[in-house]
Design a protein around this nucleic acid. Structure first.
Lengths: 350, 350
DNA sequence: ATGAAAGCGCTAACAC
DNA sequence: GTGTTAGCGCTTTCAT
């Protein structure tokens, strides 16, 4: 572990001034002798010189640093998103720093402050659930930030900055249509926690379509799950008792939990129960290839989010950014056919 | 999005010198009038002043920044580790920046350079598979780093810096002993890719114990999987054809794939096949509560890794760090009892 | 073709 | 009690 070499030391060793070294190492247009250039590069390499980006940022006023705050890095959806975002940033020559708010406003706030203190060029933020419901504090913090902020996936209502997410209501609609198509008439929906607006929206879209197809409220069972395997597992019996033939789970993990429970009852999917999941994020493991599910294209989300932030960064560098109205982009989910939806058992028309 | 406020501006607004502001805002011992202090704090708050950590780092020569590079953030084991490490760093007043090498040396190298250029105080590194097999390049880079580096989980052989990981050979032994205990005499083991040394070590420990218990090589089937659900699923039939009654999967995901395939054959676990998995990382989803598995305590790994790095950071701050011999810490895995191992069917002694 | 000097935002020693 | 000064490592005019 060697001490850090500075530009000045390189300059001295190469018998030139610091300014010359800077020009050469940054490939700035200059008319410095080819020979001198080579000498400088050689010395820099030999000494393992690496520029101090912080010092550079101080004078250039850009750090080429992007911060990403996710609520839960152990959630595969966010992990996958992080990965795609990193690719996007890297391609544009930015480094992505990632942190985890654990879905709590206090952590989120501390992280934001920390990142802003690091003089980042932009921030990608998936708000904590707490901020999703009570956005005021977060909004104030974003307004005070010195750099552009783009919200992802959880779009807090008042439009304080741009956001990119999915149309969750539409996702719920897709699920409902698919089950109606298979002639089901009695349904259940396992949503997320009551304070998760995205999950609620999925359920909302689902119910809306059912109602508009004249499904009676008595034929729809609405449940709140925990977005985990266990949540589906534990609620499966309720769904069976209710006699639903079509089930919509607001994420795949719960759908798998339900299937596990059904297997224990020696019941088969989709004969005993048709299931539509949500996310298709576990497909990476080859685990949900069987599941009919509403897919959210994480890659698209990442690309669009980055585009949005990058646009603001460029605006911010040049003139003023403030003028533009904030925009909210909603991406369309799509349904992916698996093998967990079958036609409802034929029945005498009631 | 407001422009950034500097300390100087706060000073001017509060009618004091920059130095005074610095002293007050950093709570440095000084005898500045209570009244002045309050005035400064008020102004700072009103102007939304936030210190520029980069500028500060330039003079204090510590950034309180830690870098973490993982091979694959979508792998739950690494995601979970990242989370625990972040907690540890945060508690010590450091910020953790996370990146993803995608298991490739080239990315890893670029990320390291980038982080080192950011003047981080320390680096936590899980080497890419490429570096795990061909450590020379990585070793050179670590040797040239200006800050301490701690290796995690994949301990490259030549001891260029400290490392903390698990005893994978021991994990394999535990699995073997558990199956022998249940009187199995014919085994299969699904390992990882041939270049994954950790997976190979697990298999090695497994085989060693079997052989030392006089299990014939003909009674042991060795397979290379892909560490995914599909890997287990696809190899399940091989295991059945071989007639193994005890199976060791080098991770839980493959174990689940096997179980899925068995279910399709209407075979039950553990009656038809006893299975020991590895990781217990999906337990977070409530998915493997049933699986008998070798557990690696991620939290312990995180804590010990951070302790190790932190020790070096402190040494590095004070005198020289170089003198100390590098140490490798191997943590012990432990077996977690589930419901997937049963006694082998009774049999006439051959 | 190269160097000198100023300054980015901050802290730390030392004046006053 | 508070201000002055120098300097962290770097880039960027502007001289020469």
């Amino acid at each position: 572990m060697s001490r850090r070499v500075t530009l000045k030391e390189v300059a001295k060793e190469a018998q030139v001034s610091p300014a010359t070294v800077s020009l050469v190492l940054n490939n700035k247009p200059s008319r410095i002798a080819k020979e001198t250039q080579q000498r400088i590069r050689d010395v820099a390499a030999r000494l393992h010189y690496v520029v101090n980006e912080n010092a550079r940022g101080l004078v250039t006023n850009e750090t080429r640093l992007i911060a990403l705050i996710v609520p839960d890095i152990e959630n595969m959806f966010f992990a996958s998103l992080a990965r795609h975002l990193e690719d996007a940033c890297q391609e544009a020559g930015y480094a992505l720093f990632l942190s985890n708010s654990d879905d709590r406003r206090a952590n989120e706030s501390a992280l934001m402050t920390n990142y802003l203190a690091r003089d980042i060029d932009g921030m990608l933020l998936i708000p904590s659930l707490e901020s999703y419901r009570q956005p005021r504090q977060l909004q104030r913090q974003i307004a005070a930030a010195h750099c552009p902020v783009t919200l992802i996936d959880r779009l807090v209502t008042a439009r304080i900055c741009d956001g990119v997410g999915f149309d969750n209501v539409q996702g719920g609609r897709l699920a409902a249509r698919r089950l109606l198509e298979a002639r089901h008439r009695r349904f259940a929906c396992i949503s997320g926690q009551t304070d998760d607006i995205n999950a609620s929206n999925r359920m909302q879209g689902f119910v809306d379509v059912l109602r508009s197809h004249h499904i009676d409220a008595d034929d729809i069972l609405l449940l709140n799950g925990n977005y985990r395997f266990t949540g589906g597992y534990e609620l499966a019996d309720c769904v069976l008792d209710f006699g639903a033939t079509g089930l919509f789970c607001c994420n795949d993990l719960m759908a798998m939990g339900v299937m596990q429970r059904l297997a224990e009852h020696d019941l088969h999917v989709p004969q005993a129960l048709s299931i539509v999941g949500y996310d298709n994020i576990m497909r990476r493991f080859g685990m949900t290839s069987q599941l009919t599910t509403v897919e959210q294209d994480v890659h698209e989300l990442a690309v669009r989010s980055w585009e949005c932030l990058y646009r603001h960064i460029r605006l911010h560098d040049t003139g003023r950014d403030c003028a533009t109205a904030t925009s909210v982009t909603l991406l369309e989910p799509r349904i992916v056919e698996g093998a967990t939806v079958a036609d409802a058992p034929a029945k005498v028309f009631a």
